[in-house]
Simulated scan of single mutants.
Amino acid sequence: MFSSRLSCQPDRIHRTLYTISTLAVSLAFTSVPAFAADLEPQGKPPVAIAIHGGAGTILKSSMTPEKEADYKKVLTHAVKHGYTLLQEGEKGEVAVVETIKILESSPLFNAGIGAVYTFNGEHELDASIMHGGSKNAGAVAGVKTIRSPIEAALLVMNESPHVMLSGKGAEDYAKENGLEQVDNSVFDTEFRKQALDKAKARMQQASNGYGLQRGNERFGTVGAVVLDSEGNIVAGTSTGGMTAKRYGRIGDSPVIGAGTYADNESCAVSATGHGEYFIRYNVAADICARMKYQGLSLNDAANTVVNDVLVYAGGDGGVIAIDAKGNVAMPFNSAGMYRASIDVNGNVKVAIYKD
């Protein structure tokens, strides 16, 4: 009876089978894009950032809890601000400059406001920036009246046919292009004035009336390195230089290859420490070259230069470095280094001492 009923309704059976078959095919094809999408990277392109506020004899035993909290607060604010800009799609050079400007505006660091004094009681500021994709770079050295030296370095990189401008010429160029000018006294702080007085008293006891800078007199710089959403890496550095420096001394911070370097094929580096050694050993570029030509990882290249080459030479300080995958290295051979980073997964690290 059942079979005869089916044979009497061939059209209904065919329609039912067709509907089931069509539905199955439809489900199969609509599920493929969803599965393929799971294999593709989710969300925005990876970005990362690392910053430093100088290396030197930084000991927990000589730091009050309040002062330590102040340092960490500014470092955290700066690194998060830069990271947010990167997440929003800002170019790496913009994130570097805006991050460093926060550090330049804090009296805690030796850059901009809070810059150390020269022997003659003034402030002479240096800064540089380099783009790892274009290999374009800009720097200013020995400037006294530019509110933000890192802004001036960016201006030179973007608008000038030159790489480095110095002194009054750099100030005139910045003024002609609308950068804020200030009196040199804007950078004064009592803490740095006391440091100058101590350094001069010691130095003038030397037989030649000059002597050598010691300890933290030689240190103090701020910097940032980033990986932006376009896959470019950028490095920038800004400093007030060396306490009680004379005769227009220029350190490594504005020297491309020594204190700042960036190359998309290897890494971006910003350095801090005894600048004369960083210049002699071409520290920033050396780290990138070891990655590019020896095939070393970022961590191995940075640690080799900072903890082997520099230590052997007698130089001290540290670097922050980042590669095109967003890996970060922050080695130093001094007692401490103010530093912070946010990796490609959004993990935040803020540190001062040798943890």
Rank of each mutant, 00 (worst) to 15 (best):
T239Y: 08
D188V: 03
G215V: 01
V74Q: 14
S207K: 13
A78R: 06
E217T: 04
P45G: 03
A111F: 02
R339T: 02
L103C: 12
H162S: 13
Y210T: 12
Y353A: 04
K73F: 08
N282K: 07
F119V: 08
D172K: 15
M242Y: 05
L59D: 13
E171Y: 10
A152V: 02
P10K: 09
S62Q: 14
H123I: 08
K168N: 06
L108A: 08
L296A: 09
H81G: 07
K67L: 15
A324G: 12
G92H: 07
H52I: 02
D323F: 01
P254D: 08
I320C: 07
N216G: 03
L17T: 11
Y338N: 14
A206P: 00
A262T: 06
S106A: 12
F191E: 14
V182D: 08
I113P: 00
R339Q: 12
V225H: 08
V306N: 01
A48W: 03
F278Q: 04
A302D: 10
G54H: 08
K245V: 10
N110W: 04
P149C: 09
F332P: 01
L17C: 13
E230T: 15
R214C: 01
Y312C: 01
D263R: 01
L212R: 15
S253T: 12
S61Y: 00
V328W: 02
D126S: 06
V182R: 07
M242A: 12
T239N: 02
N303K: 13
Q204G: 11
E180H: 04
V156Q: 07
V269A: 10
K325P: 00
V283R: 05
G215A: 14
I102G: 00
H274W: 14
D197S: 13
E151D: 15
A36Y: 12
G114Q: 11
Y312A: 15
K80D: 05
G295C: 05
A235S: 14
T304M: 11
A235W: 02
L155S: 03
E180G: 00
S270P: 09
S334F: 02
I287K: 09
A258W: 01
Y18A: 15
S334H: 05
K91V: 05
A262C: 07
I100N: 04
L298H: 08
L125I: 05
N345S: 14
I250M: 11
A285Y: 10
P65N: 09
G326E: 03
T145H: 15
A36Q: 11
P65E: 12
K91C: 04
H123V: 04
G273Y: 06
V348W: 00
V143L: 03
G56H: 09
K168G: 02
V234K: 04
N208K: 03
L125A: 02
K144A: 09
I129S: 11
E190N: 09
L165D: 06
S207Q: 14
S185Y: 04
P46I: 06
G178K: 07
E217C: 10
K292T: 03
A258L: 11
G138V: 07
I150K: 06
V234S: 00
L212G: 03
T118Y: 11
Q205G: 13
V156F: 03
Q205R: 15
A284K: 06
D300I: 06
N232H: 15
S134R: 01
R339H: 12
D300N: 15
